[in-house]
Amino acid sequence: MATPHALSKTAPPVMPKSGTIHPVWVRVTHWLNALAAILMMLSGWRIYDASPIFKSFTFPPAITLGGWLGGALQWHFAAMWLLVFNGLLYLALNLASGRFMRKFLPVSPRAVLHDFIAALTGKLSHADLRVYNAVQKFAYLFVVCDLIVLVLSGLAIWKSVQFPLLRELMGGYDNARIVHFCAMSLMAAFIAVHLVMVALVPRSLLAMLRGR
């Protein structure tokens, strides 16, 4: 009779569990957050062009949203409320369900570096979409923090008189505009990298659409 040790050597590898990967609330809030962030980014580029921080740099009108400054502001504020309320709901549900701790923590610089090198060399496994690697954990935590900075710096610009402490924490009105621009640029970079990753692992898109 084969010993348990021998059986463990010949047993087939454990396959990823079947079933739902992303519950409905994750998918709905994810897509609403994505919509709000993209609308804010495109309309923000039109607002930026009306008074550029860097005089030698503006965005082509064809990739902006709003048509003119007033229209862009309307789009921007509408998307802002969607992002704030939906983002708060997303964070609250993640924390209340324990998903935040399960999915995004723990993460360490060493683990991020290890998985980043593995990704560059094509050795990073995506067999089980339920498990986020360290690079994914870092990227998602980063974009959550970046969106918070975007909202706070936007408030410091929009309601500079009403939120003087927030304005001063940003280094003043002009510096708040720079912080807002940099945070927007980082979000655009995240979206670009995210789309590349989705193209490389198309199953991740299907999972976010149908849940499995």
Score class of each variant (00 low, 15 high):
Ala6Thr: 09
Leu7Val: 12
Ser8Gln: 15
Ala11Ile: 03
Met15Ala: 15
Pro16Asn: 05
Thr20Glu: 15
His22Glu: 09
Pro23Leu: 03
Trp25Asp: 08
His30Glu: 08
His30Lys: 11
Asn33Val: 01
Ala34Glu: 11
Ala37Tyr: 04
Leu39Arg: 05
Ser43Ala: 08
Ser43Gly: 08
Gly44Ser: 10
Tyr48Met: 00
Ala50Arg: 04
Ser51Glu: 12
Pro52Ile: 00
Thr58Met: 01
Ala62Phe: 14
Ala72Glu: 04
Ala72Leu: 05
Met80Lys: 08
Leu83His: 09
Val84Leu: 08
Val84Pro: 09
Asn86Pro: 04
Leu88Trp: 08
Asn94Tyr: 09
Leu95Asp: 05
Arg102Ile: 00
Pro106Phe: 10
Val107Trp: 10
Ser108Arg: 12
Arg110Thr: 07
Ala111Gln: 13
Val112Met: 07
Phe116Trp: 15
Leu120Thr: 02
Leu124Gly: 10
Ala127Met: 01
Arg130Thr: 06
Tyr132Asp: 01
Ala134Arg: 02
Gln136Phe: 00
Lys137Arg: 15
Lys137Asn: 08
Phe138Trp: 14
Val143Ala: 03
Cys145Leu: 15
Leu147Thr: 04
Ile148Glu: 03
Leu150Arg: 08
Leu152Tyr: 05
Ile157Ala: 03
Lys159Gly: 08
Val161Ser: 12
Gln162Met: 06
Leu165Val: 13
Leu169Asp: 05
Gly172Thr: 05
Tyr173Pro: 10
Ala176Met: 02
Leu186Glu: 07
Phe190Lys: 02
Ile191Phe: 11
Val193Phe: 12
Val201His: 12
Ser204Asp: 03
